[in-house]
Amino acid sequence: MSSILVQDKSVVVPGEILAEGMDYLPGDNTYRENDKIYSKVLGLGYPAGRVIKVTPLAGPYVPKPGDKIIGKIIDIAFSGWRVNTSTAYSAMMNVKDATSRFIKKEEDLSKIMAIGDHVVVKITNVTSQNLIDLTMKEPGLYKISGGRLITIDSQKVPRVIGKKGSMISQIKEKTGCNITVGQNGVIWLKGSPEGELLAEKAIKLIEQRSHQEGLTDKIEKFLEENKVPLPERKSNGSDLKESEGNEYAEETEEGGQ
């Protein structure tokens, strides 16, 4: 006889039995041993049909092609830049993937991007050994200037973005900040000092309480209670662009530097 032992979205620990019997299938972050399905991480367990899954509450970022991340230039080579990705693996960005402009052979690459600069980039390729290739040659990818950078656990990124970007839109709107969320947990905020501080606090609050229900309402209340004066907004309203799932695209005005 099969049965599900995990309550919907309850906190489970590694090794906790989630379901018994062969009617269920082990999904993300679980494993089967004999007739039992166990959790492989600390997370929130739930059944999705016959599949038992666990959403991790924390954990390292695993680089994936197509992910937009924020990295830091840590070295300049002949052919491009080495980028710290806030993981165990640094990435290489070739000159031809960084800019569509023609780069002369003897050109000083540090004039384009210097060590210590931060960049919004997209992962184009990841090998089995986690060697990572990056590009900056698409809309919404650029070198960062000003504002502030904060870091959260990468597992909380989907919660910060919210369903179809609802959470992040709300924070942008109430704080007047431009916000770019990297899938590696690095987030860039740019607005007034007060707006940036409020946005940072709201994001940290989401990170802390990502396991709780009704988070969007709680954050709305928090933002309402801590209101900051907003700068006048351009009324084109087109700076929010959603792509599929958790991905979130940012405006392009600073692209292609």
Binding site: K72, H118, G146, R148, I150
Partner: peptide, 22 residues
């Protein structure tokens, strides 16, 4: 560690402000 806020910290200090609002 991400450490990209050097310029912003300097700018804010000039206005008597800090990143964390103190």
């Amino acid at each position: 560690m991400i450490n990209g806020n050097k310029e912003t910290i300097a700018q804010l200090a000039n206005e008597g402000k800090r990143l964390d609002g103190r």
